[in-house]
Nucleic acid binder design. Structure first.
Lengths: 238, 238
DNA sequence: TCAAAAGTGTTGCGTTTACACCCATGT
DNA sequence: ACATGGGTGTAAACGCAACACTTTTGA
């Protein structure tokens, strides 16, 4: 903390953060939730913030997003896309330009991670999951960033099929519909939703069924021939 | 160029560039064109590149885009929106993260600038206008960036009314339609275009008419109550 | 008066929306 | 048997594309 810390006063540093969405069952409804990390140093020590970190000199922006994501959650997102570059002068005491990504996490992956942590007894103290629409006051401008990410998610769900990225490999149409309803915050007609989903060409029906309640529901699988991830303007696969 | 130049080997610098679109009449058709600057130093000396520059320590990203735009073209764009942050490790010899914006310029503003430069005799040698769909090989990854900006423009034109940003204050529906046709690269039905434009609520008919050829066409004005510029995720007015 | 662009009317088609209805299963 | 969600059918409403048609000017 001698020379390099002093130098932070007159250089612009580049950080990468990610808004990671997943779905969570709370009672009979499902809701969007996201993981936050508690800051352990100034500025904003003790407040919740988006997971992220500094960009390394020899890694691309995409790679930095994946790396910081893995370091905090230990998981690969099913979808990752650049959101926006935030660079207001006063958003941090030192000058920081944040390249923010947003990501989707599969429900089963989240479960697997939680179970693994519980078994290993290393449940991270500084990570917690929050309801995306009911957040506390976050560090920096992160509340605005989450709001913008939510807006992008709601928009994108309207003209693409990314919502699959929040579910396990196999899912019923009702489960998929509930995800859409949680994101769009309105009820969808099951009959019409079914026709639209089946007609999109992105769903492959299986011969397996989800049983347990009333009439068994057919399980579907996402057609991976159709691209899920956004490979960015350069079409590069990270 | 002593110590700071040496230091560029191990720091990441932030640059800002802008893809600036305008429309140009070539014969009886109109086409999208954009200004490029010839590089006067390595890397890529002599090649054409997007206007831009380094981010100052005490200016926001938006301000840097506006400033570098003014320094090269001397104009205020009618629309300015962040496009994407490019950060591949090998896109430049030293490590550079470029925050790229895209912008629209009014046709009459371009004319005014050209006339002013001609009168003052200071027509910039290093700036030239190119057809957006027929560019030479540009410096860095700027060809990819322009392609992406074109894609965004075409997309955005489909669900918003930003095309006005390319025309003068008053315009006929035929002129507006020609702009759409140039961007979307297909003919539009004049009758249906008229209904859609009038029904959008963003056009104010005037009592003035464009005369000269056949039946005079009513001039319209853009309704500035409807926001043209994208104020970004934070809703901030630059 | 004629060509050509401005502007209006009408029709057909495909998509979405609303909702009635049947099917299959656990309790 | 019956309640409940799974799944199908159908008709009205809406938006959009195609195109015939009228209007108004300059030449």
């Amino acid at each position: 903390m001698t020379r390099s810390a002093d130098r932070n006063h007159d250089i612009t540093r580049v950080a990468v953060s990610t808004v990671i969405f997943t779905v969570r069952r709370t009672g009979d409804a499902i809701s969007l939730s996201l993981p936050l990390v508690r800051r352990t140093r100034d500025p904003h020590e003790g407040q919740w913030a988006l997971p992220g970190g500094w960009l390394d000199i020899s890694e691309s922006l995409d790679a930095a997003a994946s790396r910081t994501l893995a370091e905090t959650t230990g998981l690969q997102p099913s979808y990752l896309e650049q959101l926006y570059a935030f660079g207001a002068v006063d958003r941090s005491p030192s000058r920081v330009v944040s390249i923010v990504y947003w990501a989707l996490l599969r429900q089963d992956d989240v479960d697997a991670q939680v179970a693994a942590h519980a078994a290993a007894g290393d449940a991270p103290e500084n990570v917690a999951w929050f309801d995306a629409t009911d957040l506390p006051g976050l560090a920096f401008d992160h509340n605005d960033i989450v709001d913008y990410a939510l807006w992008r998610l709601r928009n994108k769900v309207g003209y693409s099929r990314i919502a699959h990225g929040l579910l396990a490999d196999e899912f019923t149409l009702a489960e998929l519909r509930e995800v859409y309803e949680a994101i769009l915050r309105r009820r969808l007609d099951p009959a019409n939703f079914r026709r639209q989903a089946e007609g999109s060409g992105t769903l492959i029906p299986t011969e397996r069924f989800r049983t347990g309640s009333h009439r068994p529901a057919r399980l579907y699988r996402y057609n991976r021939d159709v691209e899920l991830a956004d490979h960015g303007p350069l079409g590069v696969r990270a």
